[in-house]
């Protein structure tokens, strides 16, 4: 039970310092560690480099850390949904490094797997490859990309058991499993903590070895683009 913490602030206690690098799971607002992001805000930590596919929306998700100007740099693939992000970026208050989404995912996977760099065809001949080594393999050019690790990974999963074995739910999985492997410390926010043995070992997505701390929360799970169809009336 030593991995289980009573709330998000307790789960982050002692882990934050100014200038740190934080990986934060999620795609858009789907599968983001909402309460841990709020916990980072409450910690007052400053000058964070955040590695996350997106930057939240105004006032929610990582948008909360932008409002308080706690983020110095973002490494992301797409940041279109956030006015405060735009303002800070255009004002030169915020650094931004764009990575192609698959390159970002693989950099995190590689970092967590102890692979310092890899070659990919993604981005060859574009701005993304500028200043990077390009090498030919079997007649095709590939650009070298480096692995990413972080001082802290904050991750959202659906369920954890008491030892930190994780199960994700639907497309809320996204970047969370790789980030769990690439944090020097990994803190996971879940909807339910279940006793050891209640998840079939064959159904565990992320083994508990990657998980240092767990907190059960009730998340809002805001939807960015609620898109529905109408039932045909009988």
């Amino acid at each position: 039970m030593r991995k289980i913490f009573p709330d998000a602030n307790a789960a982050l206690a002692g882990l934050t310092f100014d200038g740190m690098t934080v990986m934060s799971g999620g795609f858009g607002l789907c599968g983001i560690p909402e309460k841990l992001i709020a916990g980072l805000r409450d910690s007052g930590v400053k000058g964070i480099t955040v590695i996350s596919n997106n930057a939240g929306v105004d006032g929610f998700g990582l948008g909360q850390l932008l409002e308080t100007k706690q983020i110095a740099k973002m490494i992301s693939s797409y940041v279109g949904e956030n006015k405060e992000f735009e303002r800070q970026y255009l004002a030169g208050e915020l650094q931004l490094e764009f990575n192609p989404q698959g390159t970002l995912a693989e950099r995190i996977r590689a970092g967590g797997a102890g692979i310092p760099a890899f070659f990919t065809a993604t981005g060859v001949g574009t701005l993304v490859a500028e200043g990077k080594e390009v090498r030919e393999f079997d007649g095709r050019d590939y650009v070298m990309e480096t692995g990413l690790v972080a001082d802290l990974a904050i991750v959202k999963a659906w369920k954890a058991d008491e030892r930190g074995n994780l199960v994700f739910r639907k497309t809320a999985r996204n970047f969370n499993p790789m980030m769990a492997t690439a944090g020097k410390v990994t803190v996971v926010e879940v909807e339910e903590i279940v006793p050891v043995g209640s998840i079939d070992p064959d159904h565990i997505h992320t083994p508990g070895i990657y998980v240092d701390r767990i907190v059960q929360t009730v998340s809002e799970k805001r939807i960015e683009q609620r898109t529905i169809r109408q039932r045909e009336t009988a």
Binding site: G28, Q101, T171, K221, R226, T227, I228
Partner: peptide
């Protein structure tokens, strides 16, 4: 509508019998 089930345009979608889910690194693999 399920907040945990969206497409790459961040619109809510549904699953069908043959659906499968995976991580972003598996997706780009």
């Amino acid at each position: 509508v399920d907040a945990d089930l969206i497409n790459a345009g961040k619109q809510t979608i549904t699953e069908i019998p043959e659906s499968s889910y995976f991580s972003s690194s598996d997706s780009f693999a």
